[in-house]
Simulated scan of single mutants.
Amino acid sequence: MSVADGRRMSAARAYLHEAIDRPNVRLVLHCEVRRIIFDGATATGVEAVVPEGVVSFSARREVIVCAGALESPLLLERSGVGDPRVLAAAGVPMVAGNRAIGGNLRQHRGIAFMTQFSEVPGGSAVLPFGTATVAAVLKSDLSASAPDTDLLFYPFVVPGHDGAPARIGGAAVGFYPHSPTSTGSIHITGPGLEHAPRLVPNYLSTDHDRKLLVAGFARFREIVAAEPFASIASSADLPKSEDEEGLVRHSLEHGAVINHPIGTCALGPSGAVDDQLRVRGTDRLRVADASVMPTLPSGNTAAPSMAVGWITGDLILDGVSR
């Protein structure tokens, strides 16, 4: 959990606020970058929309893109860096061809079930430690070589697909497989911020992911059927079908993503960025966020994303010191 002194701690409070008074830091609010400015294939700054209009910011050394796994590839493509076919279809002049940008989108997708407690009284309190107060990392199959599933427990009932309001005196319990192999994509459809992207998530499209979902659900049922949970909780919204087709359909219709998108500017020998996180085909341009991760970490992506930022800082300082 990201917690300090009993309260939730954001990355902004932990890092940005500590550095905001430095002379080399300037924070601009209500600002959306619409493209990276290039001189040839060299990044020289960014063009952004602010309440007063359009402004440009120049970079003396490098441009570092940190917009996340959904926005970073879109920004690069709007700037002319991406798959030539995507750029041509969107009407964007090509600066650098890079077919890996926007592909390899991976997400944790899980299922949550609402329960009502028959004996435990409800209460109200601030949630200083996040929503999932209990978590388990487990094997969906006891013969597996390593844990492959997360089980989460939330001490409240949240609105579901039936539109029911949040209630106390209940719980939400759910699970998600760790390392999905299904990959999707996100790409621009036009040159401007006003053009909606084309998102193809492609969830549960591989046999690996479908079988892991089925195995995870079987383990989930064993756990929620155990005492003392089983005596006080009703799980009326469990899917009626437990075969692969039924569970996959239930997950796609009633499940949810865990907001862990990664991989759309992945590093690797044929990836969008190299091992210094420099965008291939360009100069003075890096990406430093979850989009550079080629595969999903087993758990949440917040701490690994902060680690990417920390490592990128070291890479930049190393380059400056040479």
Rank of each mutant, 00 (worst) to 15 (best):
C265N: 11
A164T: 14
D289F: 15
G190C: 06
V279Y: 07
D243W: 02
A218K: 14
V158N: 12
G184T: 08
E194Q: 14
R219V: 00
S72P: 00
L152P: 04
H108L: 05
I168Y: 08
N98P: 07
S79A: 13
V63I: 09
D162V: 03
G299W: 01
A125I: 00
V200C: 11
G53P: 12
A215G: 01
D209T: 09
R286Q: 02
R219D: 00
V120Y: 02
V292H: 10
R34V: 08
S305H: 03
T264F: 04
A196Y: 13
G246M: 01
V200L: 11
T44Y: 12
S124V: 12
V214I: 01
R286H: 01
A4T: 07
G123K: 05
G170F: 12
R210I: 03
F38N: 01
H30V: 05
A196I: 02
L285W: 05
N259Y: 14
P23R: 14
S321Q: 13
G91Q: 13
S124Q: 07
R61Q: 12
R22S: 08
V200D: 13
P180Y: 01
D83N: 15
P294T: 12
E227T: 13
Q107T: 04
E47T: 09
A171F: 01
G80P: 05
V50G: 09
T149Q: 05
I20F: 02
A230V: 06
P191H: 08
V157W: 06
I111T: 03
